[in-house]
């Protein structure tokens, strides 16, 4: 089955309309930066200081009250959306459905952003940045992006969210929105990367995907556990009690992600990999709306 079926763009277009109609201004559409500058929309006044451009003096107020006040205008800028795609081998666990969903989500979010005249950039990472779709704008670029995503494959040694964010920041990226699509099986801790985004005032959103087999492996007896990310092997005897412990740890991991995002105002959407991507986008939008 193709990663992007023929009706993919139709469904994404529909999502784009929905996002504008229902969540206008709340997510991506037509953001205005708080940077004041040479825009046309008046913002407020401030005291004149030596060196200011006389062209922005409000002569009417000076005429009436004799105060030298400088007019300030809000500068309108397009939003930069950075999409971070986890390409570690854990994303291909099982039948690869998780990785497919991740790429579909990246494509869908990118399309919505491009449709709103925002700029998007996609960065694929494992234990470092393994692929990059440079910052771009315009809906016409979506096909190139989809082609880029289709070419992406899982690999690397381990998931390292921190390394991915580090790579993003090293590129001198402007602040914007960062969407992380990953299973967050980062042995070093997912918080490390998200902390950097948060500190750099990125508007971050986490899309965590997992499979049912990961939540409840159903293993019993003597087994050799093979970590498909780093090929390490661990011989263990799995008992019912071990299984219970595993389920508890997995649930705790999921909770810790939710807790982290809620504490620091990050958007968070967790879903099993069998959920359709459009439903997941809507769920993400709702989560963002509630958060705002």
């Amino acid at each position: 089955m193709s990663l992007f079926p023929s009706d993919f763009l139709t469904r994404v277009e529909y999502l784009s309309i929905i996002s504008r109609r229902v969540f206008r201004g709340s997510l991506l559409a037509q953001r205005r930066t708080m940077q004041l500058g040479s825009g046309i929309e008046f913002s407020d006044h401030r005291e004149y200081a030596a060196g200011d451009d006389f062209r922005y003096l409000d002569w009417n107020i000076y005429a009436r009250h004799g105060d030298l006040l400088l007019k300030r205008f809000q500068e309108e800028q397009d939003l930069h959306v950075y999409l971070l795609l986890d390409c570690s081998r854990s994303m291909a666990f099982g039948d690869g459905r998780k990785f497919d969903l991740a790429r579909q989500l990246i494509a869908a979010i990118a399309y919505i952003a491009l449709a709103d005249l925002d700029r998007i950039s996609v960065m694929a990472f494992t234990d470092g940045v393994v692929g990059e779709f440079p910052l771009t704008r315009g809906k016409a670029r979506i096909l190139q992006l989809m082609s880029f995503l289709e070419r992406m494959q899982t690999g690397g040694q381990e998931t390292d969210v921190g390394a991915a964010v580090q790579g993003l920041l090293h590129r001198g990226s402007r602040r914007g929105m960062a969407v992380l699509v990953s299973d967050l099986f980062d042995p070093r801790g997912f918080q490390r990367g998200l902390d950097q985004l948060r500190h750099r005032r990125f508007d971050a959103h986490v899309l965590q995907l997992y499979r049912a087999e990961e939540a409840d492996p159903g293993l019993l007896g003597d087994v050799e556990l093979v970590d498909i990310e780093n090929d390490s092997i661990r011989k263990v005897t799995v008992t019912e009690r071990n299984l219970r412990s595993y389920r508890e740890l997995f649930t705790a991991h999921q909770s810790s992600v939710r807790e982290y995002c809620r504490n620091y105002g990050l958007g968070c959407t967790q879903a099993e990999a069998s959920v359709p991507f459009d439903e997941l986008i809507l769920r993400m939008m709702r989560a963002t709306q509630v958060q705002r």
């Binding site: 854990s90 007896g221 556990l225 263990v236």
Partner: peptide, 24 residues
């Protein structure tokens, strides 16, 4: 006694479980 090989997304949870008691 030849163990079944079971691939898993990550062993970090299993490690937490079995690090408390050395397996095998």
């Amino acid at each position: 006694v030849r163990l079944r090989r079971m691939p898993t997304s990550t062993t970090m949870f299993w490690n937490q479980i079995f690090d408390e008691k050395p397996p095998r």
